[in-house]
Design a binder for these strands. Structure first.
Lengths: 231, 231
DNA sequence: CGCGAACTGTAAGCGCGATCACCGATCCAC
DNA sequence: GTGGATCGGTGATCGCGCTTACAGTTCGCG
């Protein structure tokens, strides 16, 4: 029992939106958010199976993506542990065009819509942090939108690699950061085709900026890659 | 004095984020948000002159946009009366890459950062609505991002015209809606060049879907235009 | 260990839309 | 009403990146 409670609080304490809460408060919320696991490749939700719940990612990675009429995919977000996500119809709108897929084996906490309102939105300390998260997401999407309009594919790929590397291992961005992504996933993140992604990555690798291996990209020369992204 | 107070409340009552408040509460907030006017073409803020304030648009239109290194512009949002906007560093992040420009002569209420925290973020009734607004903005940006990746320029232009027409005159979307936009502004909204925007609009006009005149686009056949947008 | 699936690499072709270079039309200010 | 500025229209050129079509490679799994 105490083990279980401890685990739940571990779940909560890692999540920055609960940073202002006391241990007792976290326990109350944790009790309303049971854990659930998914295997790599599983869909957590889709336009056809929408969910009325909020997820808190504990372990693994999740990607949020959309599908074009002709079947191409665009990844709009990569969720990392400690982050909340969900269909967001809890925030008033239905963004049912989104799929959520587990990239790795994944552990999440699940909170029902009613509890989201009771525990999260009614508490100013938490709702202000939700606003912060949404604000960050707005800023990121604005950047990606202008990048897709303004920049070339090589620039976008370089920029995306820098961004992901930077948030993977906080701070300066050293050499040798490994990103566990296939060319296909990079293509879906940058809004290009798998073939061009392969070509561009190959050119960067030839120049010694990257090392490529199956399903992994290692950044060898962060500075040049950053410069390559253009601003 | 009473006139002035009445005007201020008029300002507030039109804004949906204050819908839950009493008249007295609105007055308190209104007192902290003096009015300010700008002429068409004026910049309300820019990356070089950032502001630490929140704007509430009372009258006119404002566009939020970004500039590419080589001078092209991309409009990321068109603000209409009753909507809040701002540099959003009040929400924890700096999205200083944005310009805000008055499209028409504009009247806004301006609220300082400290008052934003005191009056808005600390009140659950308001902060939940701010979350809603940000959530809607996230959904809109996700749609625009996937549209730029998936759709052709003609489809994006058709979609943008439908969207703007729909939110201009709420509900069904009748025929004969007029949009006060130049080809250049439409190009900046859809992430294309002015020349191609002109060509595409001309083709739609030839087919009898639109009527064009200087600085205005009139939608003649909403159904076909909507279909043209693809989904 | 051998098969199939997923991932990676390569190359030719071509179409969309950016870019460049204009000119006419409309509007506004003086 | 005249000059300047903004807006609208049009064509030629050209290159990026999508598409199509394979072939080789690494991995997981039975």
């Amino acid at each position: 029992m105490e083990r279980a409670t401890g685990d739940d609080i571990w779940c909560m304490a890692e999540v920055d939106i609960f940073a202002d809460l006391s241990a007792a408060e976290m326990e109350t919320i944790a009790a309303a958010a049971p854990m659930k696991t998914y295997s790599a490749g599983d869909l957590l939700y889709s336009p056809h199976q929408p969910v009325e719940t909020l997820f808190i990612l504990k372990k693994g990675r999740v990607r949020i993506f959309r599908i074009s009429p002709d079947g191409r995919a665009l990844t709009t977000a990569l969720i990392t542990p400690g982050t909340i996500f969900g269909d967001m119809l809890l925030l008033g709108q239905q963004m049912h065009d989104n799929f959520a897929e587990a990239l790795d084996d994944v552990v999440v906490c699940v909170m029902a819509r009613a509890d989201v309102h009771r525990f999260l939105l009614s508490d100013p300390r938490i709702s202000i942090r939700i606003s912060e998260i949404l604000g960050r997401r707005v800023a990121e999407l604005e950047r990606r939108l202008s990048d897709t309009v303004f920049k070339s594919v090589p620039q976008r790929i370089a920029g995306t690699l820098c961004l992901l590397a930077g948030e993977q291992q906080k701070r300066p961005l050293g050499r040798g950061v490994q990103l566990a992504l296939t060319h296909e996933q990079i293509a879906a993140l940058t809004g290009t085709s798998r073939e061009t992604a392969t070509k561009v990555l190959g050119e960067y690798a030839d120049r010694g900026l990257l090392k490529l291996s199956r399903g992994k990209v290692t950044i060898l020369d962060p500075d040049t890659i950053t410069a390559e992204a253009g601003q």
